[in-house]
């Protein structure tokens, strides 16, 4: 190990473990966080999982205190490395058995176990190994080489920032925003041509034609196609003719392929009801029950 890194490792690991340990031990949400970790299944009890997470926090705090107070002792470094190895093993087990569970690592942000979780645990392991080989107390090293020490601390902080999701909003999101401002959105702008089918369905669903036909329509959109400027939307339905019983029908709507709720507030929709078995047009006065009389003559 590089001597200055080894000598500062107790400080860096100590501060990191103090922060995460205190978060787990004293955090108000620890129990809630524990409920989403694989600990619940291992311990068979949500309350015990919370207690276990707090116990780990207490252990982290104890190790942190030892690291900071006795930087040249081997035991705190080894204990840190053991903690790190424990985290890696726990994450590996959780990843295999319950990949969607939360890691509970920093007792703040929650998220599925990913590369960042493993990187964090690996850093604790490496930091522990480095701390165990420290030969000079960190305060002596900082007084002796203040410039390099500051550089080391800044580099370590940057490394932790990069592997921690907690602080994404501080640096990652502004960076992503800047990239989009400089290079534009990577997503496609609107192409020309007809509106998306979803926009036609949206317009249809807000139309009087849809309201009038809704007692007959039973399915959601079954099929759609464009033909000479028209978009045809096919639905399945059931029509109960007075005295003739119910029969399955196709309900067809035809709209302008360019029309959407942006282009018209009062959509013109052609509606026809076709018997599914015989393909005959079923004569239905759709507007009879709707209280609105706005039928235009058939345009041809």
């Amino acid at each position: 190990m590089i001597p200055i890194v080894s000598d500062l490792a107790p400080l860096l690991c100590g501060v990191l473990l103090a922060v995460t340990g205190a978060g787990k031990l004293f955090g108000r949400r620890t129990a809630q966080l524990a409920a989403n970790t694989v600990l619940v299944r291992v311990l068979n009890d949500g309350r015990r999982a919370g207690q276990a997470l707090r116990a780990v926090g207490a252990a982290e705090l104890a190790v942190a205190a030892a690291l900071l107070a006795a930087p040249r002792a081997v035991v705190p470094g080894v204990a840190t490395a053991v903690l790190g190895a424990g985290f890696v093993g726990y994450l590996g087990y959780a990843k295999v058995t319950a990949p969607e569970s939360s890691c509970g690592c920093s007792a703040r942000a929650e998220g599925p176990i990913g590369a960042r979780s493993f990187a964090r645990a690996g850093l604790v392991l490496l930091g522990g190994v480095a701390a165990a080989t420290a030969t000079t107390a960190w305060w002596t090293e900082m007084i002796r080489r203040p410039g390099w020490s500051a550089l080391c601390v800044v580099a370590a902080a940057a490394l932790l920032l990069a592997v921690s999701a907690d602080l994404d909003h501080v640096w990652l999101l502004p960076l992503r925003r800047l990239r989009i401002r400089l290079f534009g959105s990577p997503l496609a702008p609107a192409g020309g041509g007809p509106v998306p089918v979803a926009a036609s369905v949206e317009l249809l669903e807000q139309s009087l034609a849809w309201q009038a036909a809704s007692p007959i329509v039973r399915s959601a959109l079954l099929d759609d196609w464009d033909d000479e400027g028209w978009r045809v939307l096919r639905f399945a339905g059931v029509y109960e003719a007075p005295g003739r019983g119910a029969r399955p029908v196709n309900v067809l709507f035809a709209l302008d392929t360019d029309a959407s709720i942006d282009t018209t507030a009062s959509p013109a929709v052609r509606v026809s009801v076709i018997d599914d078995a015989t393909d005959e047009m079923v004569p239905v006065d759709l507007l009879a029950g709707s209280g609105v009389r706005a039928v235009l003559p058939m345009a041809r």
Partner: peptide, 9 residues
């Protein structure tokens, strides 16, 4: 060939 219904719901 169906009837045209104009309006919003």
């Amino acid at each position: 060939g169906g009837a045209t219904i104009v309006g919003a719901s």
